[in-house]
Design a protein around this nucleic acid. Structure first.
Lengths: 193, 193, 193, 193
DNA sequence: GATGAATGAGGATTCATTCAT
DNA sequence: TATGAATGAATCCTCATTCAT
């Protein structure tokens, strides 16, 4: 079963979710297709289970909060730390990108991505809330969605580069998020006296 | 043939490129599969032709330059104008999003997307160059890629919302790009004496 | 039209008759499929017409008789001459091999091959008849079929070799036919006074 | 699976290899197309497996040597025996002819035929070697190829006739091979004291 | 006469899924 | 529990042939 999930991760990574076939996953896992269907009712269930395990691992690794919510932390540092952690996690689990990879058709959110995506948005929301006191919840949600979208877009750039160029893109990603958020939190600077 | 391209656009939009089948496109166009293959050797060729037509239309609609390069234009206004135009174009041609939609597997750039994507990056690069004098070409290219990625990510958010919420996301997209670019052009303010 | 036949010969040679498509022939000829069908009702008709033209050319080149029926000619020389002429003709018109190439299914003689094949058998029969006086017609026919079959088999070997090896196979082909026929004509030696 | 191979043999026989469709084979076997592809990756693999089974059966039936290599056996008898056995085998397995059937295009040996054809040539070579002592290997190989070609050509004639006519053609085939080989082995007559 | 778009059944092959063993 | 053969509709694509222009 862990075998199956690993195989699924591997196949998802190399072919993408849509093009991944259950037979290929079973083969990669060294089991028969029938066995796969004894654990998962369909391909999507595999993606969902995989997502859940990844989220669990993320929570275990980084704790409930993504970043230290120490209000004294400068935003720039907080953002950089969050990005570094996310990037690190994604590099160790490249399938995350594949699973989060937006739907082919905007608006029709693919279910399998939803779990991971929604959870991450929620985490970002939780992270943002103390930074944006007095901001309507709807605005915070929107901001979280935007951050998530930017992060995913940046991640794609990062993953398809290597070495110094990758580092440069990571820095850009930090810049984007920092500059985007700064004016929002600027009114109540976290670097108070 | 225009019939076929329209049908393809429609099918790409509703199912995504990967899941779109040539038979479905032919059916949507009201012709037989054979007919489709008299015009296009395969699915990718359809996407490429579609991309080319869209790029052509874009050039015809907005001219060679995406935005007025009047150096006196405040960055915020320039960015807002560019985003509005892009968004408008994408809303009139929703297939653009599908065609630009990143690869399932990062790094392995799908050929059919390349044309459109690369062309757009080039346009952004051309737009940025006068704004960032003295910046190394490699940095400008990177910045253009980042802008493009942000735009695509924002577009997805925008397209999956409607009404006021969509407007709000459009504004966020403008904010992101403006705030991201502002420090870069800040050293040589376009609002000179 | 000659254009079409040339194109057909070329396509038949490079893909074989079965795999040759009328569209490919039309393309090779630089005309549209429709044009092809204005001259030929179907693929087979092309093969038939091609066969007929080849037979005509053969008759024009070598006269009604394949070989000099001078009874004084030693069999070995006559056979060698006939083989050389056939081989020469087949090398100048490689499509002959393709057209003669036996049916995929023995017994169900493909119609298009029939013309050429039957004509050649008839020529061989005519050639043999004076050499085998007193032999029942059925036997002569059978012998002609055998010669034809041997020739075709030898031709395949010859055509798939080059240089010295090809020459060696040509010699073997002559040997086969000569040794096969010698005992049959031996009783009434053509070299009689 | 045996079911599939039998069906394939049947379809190959009635339509020829090129024209045989995997769907037709599946239908003939009474299974769905998908089932066929669980055992064979493609049409050629079926032909190859079929060839291998036939070669195995041939070896099991006739032993490693095709004919008794008793040097005292007159060539005529040895050839007749070999032909009879081959013919018998081919009549019991008509698909052999189809599988051996030369390529549509000379020189481009079809892979699927190769196995069977090459194996048979090797057997003939083994058979000839003791009969032709002192002959260069290259010549023996060539002679084996010629014998094989003659046999295939004769087989086609035989298979497309029935009854007495078939018997007559079998006799002719024996004659051809015997007369072709006799001068070669004549120098060291196997009928020694 | 020539065109070339149109056909549509058929080609090989794949795939998510089921089920008897 | 695990297997792996079986499914059959769906995939992309081809082809001989037709027919309006």
């Amino acid at each position: 079963m862990a075998q199956l999930l690993e195989a699924a991760a591997s196949v998802f990574c190399s072919t993408g979710y849509t093009a991944a076939s259950t037979n290929a996953i079973a083969r990669e896992a060294g089991v028969s297709p029938g066995t796969l269907y004894q654990f998962f009712p369909n391909k999507e269930a595999i993606a969902i289970e995989l997502s859940e395990r990844l989220m669990l691992e993320m929570r275990e690794t980084y704790g409930e909060a993504l970043a230290p919510v120490d209000p004294a932390t400068p935003l720039e540092v907080a953002v950089a730390a969050a990005v570094d952690r996310f990037i690190d996690f994604n590099c160790r689990h490249p399938v995350v990108y594949t699973l989060m990879h937006g739907p082919d058709v905007p608006g029709r959110i693919a279910e399998q991505h939803d779990a991971l995506h929604t959870a991450l948005v929620a985490r970002i929301e939780a992270l943002l809330t103390p930074l944006l006191p007095g901001t309507p919840a709807a605005d915070i949600t929107r901001t979280a969605h935007v951050c998530m979208a930017m992060y995913k877009a940046g991640l794609e750039l990062v993953l398809s580069r290597e070495g110094a160029e990758r580092e440069a893109y990571i820095q850009e990603l930090k810049n984007i998020l920092h500059r985007y958020l700064e004016p929002l939190v600027g009114d109540c600077p976290p670097t108070g006296p």
